[in-house]
């Protein structure tokens, strides 16, 4: 299976600021077995439609003793914008502002919403799942009333019990993360 999220060595020490201005290293899981990262965007309708599911995934992750981050990979999203967006959509997860897109580039994230589940209890960074959160959208513009397949929930459940995820990559669907440099 061709994967954009090839597992193996990565720059674990990518630093991204949170909305309080503090530098975080999301790929270094301190005392957590895995880290869940969800790329979102304040005005992406596809990411926003999935906001309740993002919050459910956040709770599921935290309850399992792992770490969860919502990431905005856009230079124009300020801490204030991100916090307002989170309040509006009832998302309580910690937020990272990946303004230079270093984290998005490191993880090869391409759209919002896109989830990356990273195993962190070993010397190297291993992505155990990346991509689609669920099947709410059958394609761009074709949205179901409800999702019937919950890929991200299953991936996190697998991470909790230390199992692999198959497939480990599902092509995500959403709004492009426009690269800061062409």
């Amino acid at each position: 299976m061709a994967m954009s999220c090839d597992s193996g060595l990565r720059t674990r020490h990518v630093e991204v600021r949170d909305t309080g201005g503090a530098l975080q290293k999301p790929l270094v899981g301190v005392d957590v077995p895995f880290v869940v990262i969800v790329f979102a965007s304040p005005d992406c309708p596809i990411a926003n439609a999935i906001a309740p599911e993002i919050e459910r995934l956040h709770k599921m992750t935290v309850d399992a003793g792992a770490a969860f981050y919502l990431v905005h990979a856009r230079s124009d999203v300020t801490a204030d914008t991100a916090q307002k967006h989170a309040r509006k959509f009832a998302i309580s997860a910690p937020i990272l502002l990946d303004t230079d897109q270093s984290l998005a580039k490191e993880l090869n994230a391409t759209v919002t919403p896109e989830i990356v589940v990273v195993k962190t209890d070993q010397p190297t960074v291993e992505i155990i799942y990346q991509g689609l959160i669920n099947n709410l959208y059958a394609s761009l513009g074709n949205r179901r009333d409800q999702a019937s397949e919950h890929y991200a929930r299953e991936a996190i459940a697998s991470a909790i019990v230390g199992q692999t995820v198959d497939p480990a990559y599902r092509k995500p669907l959403g709004c492009f993360i426009e690269r800061a440099e062409p």
């Binding site: 005005d43 309708p45 856009r74 124009d76 761009l140 492009f176 426009e178």
Partner: peptide
């Protein structure tokens, strides 16, 4: 979900606009 008045706002979504209009 977003306004397209400013050239910057449109440029930010140029690839997305290309895709959704071409399709």
């Amino acid at each position: 979900p977003f306004a397209l008045h400013d050239p910057e706002s449109v440029a930010l979504r140029a690839r997305f606009i290309k895709e959704v209009t071409a399709s």
